[in-house]
Write a protein that binds this DNA or RNA. Sequence first.
DNA 1: ATGAAAGCGCTAACAC
DNA 2: GTGTTAGCGCTTTCAT
Lengths: 333, 333
Amino acid sequence: MHKQEVTIYDVAREAKVSMATVSRVVNGNDNVRKETRDRVMEVIKRLHYQPNAVAQGLASKRTTTVGLVVPDLTNLYFAELSKGIDDIALLYKYNIIITSIENRLMKEDQAIQSLLNKQVDGVIYMSNRLPEKVIDAFERTDTPVVLAGTKDNREDLPSVTIDYKKADTEALNLMFNDGKKNLGIVVGDPDAVVNSEYRIPAYKEFIKEHDLGEAHIYTNVMDYSDGYNLYSQLAKDGVDGVIVTRDSSAVGILNSAMDAGKNVPKDLEIVTASATQIASVVRPALTTIKQPLYDMGAVAMRMLTKLMNNEEVEDVHIELPYELVKKQSTLNQ
Amino acid sequence: MHKQEVTIYDVAREAKVSMATVSRVVNGNDNVRKETRDRVMEVIKRLHYQPNAVAQGLASKRTTTVGLVVPDLTNLYFAELSKGIDDIALLYKYNIIITSIENRLMKEDQAIQSLLNKQVDGVIYMSNRLPEKVIDAFERTDTPVVLAGTKDNREDLPSVTIDYKKADTEALNLMFNDGKKNLGIVVGDPDAVVNSEYRIPAYKEFIKEHDLGEAHIYTNVMDYSDGYNLYSQLAKDGVDGVIVTRDSSAVGILNSAMDAGKNVPKDLEIVTASATQIASVVRPALTTIKQPLYDMGAVAMRMLTKLMNNEEVEDVHIELPYELVKKQSTLNQ
DNA sequence: ATGAAAGCGCTAACAC
DNA sequence: GTGTTAGCGCTTTCAT
């Protein structure tokens, strides 16, 4: 399509060396006399030679490219994870191919296959859904995979997360100690492993242990308007404290409650489980389980670099510390 | 690195045809007898053959990959643009390599070069800064480039934008008609073409035409806290209406004003120039110049697909319609 | 409709 | 230290 202006062969000819030597210079191989190296470098500069990464990839079987699988770019939760990944990727000179898969023509396994076909050296998977087909695809390849902000059922795949159970329990406890006895939980996809295996069980255990009666579990609350519309139901159910996994939903609940003339936190306490910017700019500011999203991304990418280099990785299931940040959407007594 | 389990050669041997025929089947070339095609397809299925996109890229000189250059993934403005791009890219089966460049080791021209080395078929550039070096790199290559949400000085490069001058003038006029006579403008990077060539000139013209006295131009206000901290200055300067290009800054100003006991919009009107989610969830909700970000991204990507296929493109400088959405941060009289 | 063969631009033994 | 030579896995003429 576009003119590959200058190839390694042109440089070799002009510098009166072999392609191999140019390749050595380009790749920083030490086995080149300084004099030769300088001559080659000069020609490279003069001819504006730039190596063709596709050819390099085919010959070396390494593309210095990693794939990111993310549900939605416009969800700040994933954007902040991605930023951490991106920074470390840059540090190690990897490019990033990003694939978003929510509400899409493309299914998860197709996304993975597409990435693998591009010969990515590794994959970071952030989607909270992990269908069997994806697992199969991962198992059919040697390409290392790291999960960021999610887990698989069997805990086979390396992952970087927080302790969701502990975090949610702590949040519920905060509201309980504020005197709220009719607690609820609001999640997005109920089948997401994080929800089905950690958050919802943590909630169930909590209300059982504290004898809080009926469970109030609200699922498929995906965005602001879902949250906004949910409030009337929360009111009807007499819920006086909720933990909400998505902060856009939490903000929707907040605004809806206030529009209904209610007082947050007096009438309803809200704790959101992902501390993106949106949770801190609304008033009253939301109490949050602050996940170290940037760090989670960075740690995941760092782990992936090790896996791609066949380096030893001591622990493939890393849990980073979270922080329960008390703001004005809880009484904090 | 990873075992390329099955190659086109394996399929050819197993199906008792040549590699060329397998290639034809894979690429949907019609010149294959149905019988042969079926046999090849069967083998492909059975062997789980997947073409190596790197080898395809080297041989065909098309990678079906486009590069995105974006300042910051966690800025919803860019995220929403990217989403539009991504959806159209998926439709046309392009993968996306994303490169973010703000506050980074990597400079704009290195980012571009890295993308070009990967032999991307096209580039969408969203950064509001467009250094000479980047222009040079673009000129040294045949790879098509489209600017999304930004322009270059000479208007050489194809672009998708809104009419910034008209939009800002309309916003200023709204505030003027509300009786605000001490208007200001708050921007991020003052050297960004959109600011230096359109927004700031539009502002200057407006206050000159309406004889509003001294100009109040605030630059390098990049985020929420910059906006929050700026408010005291706005108050000191007696500004009673501002147009703010970044909505995180706008929200910062809003919260700061309210924390100072001021009334928005009575004491200060705020119009933000990019309508991301954050502008609509705060209370009072912000009046916004609603740019069709998703559409801008989609249109840019669609234009790029045409350029990559050497198709005719009637207009390479597309301006999409915006909408001035009146909310509670202006009086709207 | 199908096959043979020449590359695409580079890396990586291996030889000297 | 440097050159020679096979590939990497695929596409694409050009024959037939």
